[in-house]
Nucleic acid binder design. Structure first.
Lengths: 260, 260
DNA sequence: CCGGAATGTTCCATATTTTGGAACTCCTAC
DNA sequence: GTAGGAGTTCCAAAATATGGAACATTCCGG
């Protein structure tokens, strides 16, 4: 029985398990992911073997396929950033998201700061066939998403600056905020108003409202996303109020105390 | 070819990979871990199969064996709590820890807040054969460790309370702080003084000095741990100064700006 | 201390599964 | 249209994973 890499003297090593670990080690090295051919090359597995491993890991969510690039990257099963804690949190927040979805008939999201981006942890989709919906494990930038802005209000401004310096503030739509100064001003507004708005800044046809969940101990926020034609700017305050109400209630339920 | 659980209609599923995923799913459910027999029971694998899988995963650090309880639990390869970011951070901090180890000839640690505990990310061990050293992936409570105290100074006091209420403040040694009020007072001292001290509170024969790394964006701290007989209380300020100096330098290096 | 139960570790013949190469499909660029 | 590259499918047989049983170790109770 031969196994690649160091088994650390451990007997009874299973080669297929080692191969899984090789792939999991690799997939963590690059957030944007790898093509099948790259995985095969780096791991030195035959392409068909690599394909089967990746497909199996994908079916179990340890690996996911980026819908745009087709690259294989870290999946949601690997994403619980604080493991237990995030899983428990998502489970407890899901009923609220479901209720909001039923009430407002749009897509609800739970997002977390993950490195320099927002990562979608939980998504409860709109009943409409035309909907604005990310997928679990998707990541979006901080500067042009409502989730990003809501979370940015809860973290150190110096940290926000570091992130944006590092990631850039790419123009995704004509409405995208691309200067740090403008972004800071938006954050002030966001903070005073109590909710964050992505007004066709991330997706030219999309609008999104988000509120942070302070006191939870993790940089998380919930949001409602909708096609812009169904969520007029005039409707935003009403939606925000529903989100804020749900946020207050769920924080209370989770922490056993009320948010100040 | 039969595979357990939902393959989601994915063809070319590899049974051994599914089994790895079953174990990884299970191991994430309980921080304190599982015995071999429990893993075998829950997964319904024959004991010898479960044993081989766990051993292989252990050799690759996705699973680790708790040295005290012998239970199998999540390993460091699963621990990079912010994945990329923590790996990069540890790589950049290691040379500093190594230099401090060479200078002070004791064990240096990098720890992070992980759920309700401190988790050891990086350890550079003392050259002495008698040393106080945790192992990567080990977890310790917040209330009786210098790392825990240093990190507690950087997070919301309400969060600290929640953690301690949940985890308790178990007496580990006669010197352990077991009341929240006393702990808060220690944190005030820690904050004013600039460093945290575990004065035989976690280990009756151990002393530990820690400083937080503010502005990094993660709840992390570095510490020096030593047998108490080699680290007298009078030596603590000198050690703390070396740690603080290194902390200032590495924060500057990592963030590209100086800590305020 | 002894015995029994429980947990962990080792071994082995063979059944099962994984394997890797080749063929095929699809897509893109020239 | 053609070529090349990435992804997908297939299959015979080589390789490995398998599971049960035996063995070793530890723990607990009488």
């Amino acid at each position: 029985m031969e196994h690649s890499g160091d088994s650390g003297g451990k007997p009874y090593s299973i080669r297929a398990v080692q191969r899984v670990c090789n792939i999991l080690d690799l997939i963590q090295e690059k957030p944007e992911g790898f093509s099948l051919t790259q995985v095969a090359e780096v791991t030195q597995f035959p392409k068909s073997s690599a394909f089967r491993y990746l497909n199996t890991l994908e079916s179990r969510r340890y690996v996911m396929r980026d819908p745009l690039s087709g690259l294989f990257r870290i999946g949601p099963a690997f994403l619980p950033l604080q493991s237990q804690q995030l899983t428990v949190l998502a489970d407890r927040i899901r009923p609220y998201l479901t209720q909001l979805r039923d009430q407002l008939e749009e897509t609800l999201n739970l997002g977390i700061l993950d490195g320099n981006c927002v990562s979608y942890v939980e998504i409860v989709e709109s009943p409409h066939s035309v909907r604005l919906a990310a997928r679990p494990g998707d990541r979006d930038p901080l500067h042009c998403t409502a989730l990003g802005k809501a979370i940015a209000c809860t973290i150190d401004p110096a940290r926000v600056k570091t992130i944006l310096d590092s990631e850039g503030m790419a123009q995704r739509t004509p409405a995208t905020i691309t200067s740090f100064q403008d972004y800071l001003e938006d954050l002030v507004t966001t903070h005073l108003r109590g909710y964050a708005l992505d007004n066709c800044e991330n997706d030219v046809d999309g609008r999104c409202v988000a509120v942070a969940l302070p006191d939870i101990g993790l940089p998380v926020a919930i949001s409602l996303s909708a096609p812009a034609y169904r969520l007029a700017v005039d409707d935003v305050p009403k939606v925000a109020e529903a989100l804020e109400q749900a946020a207050r209630q769920l924080i209370k339920d989770i922490t056993g105390e009320s948010s100040s």
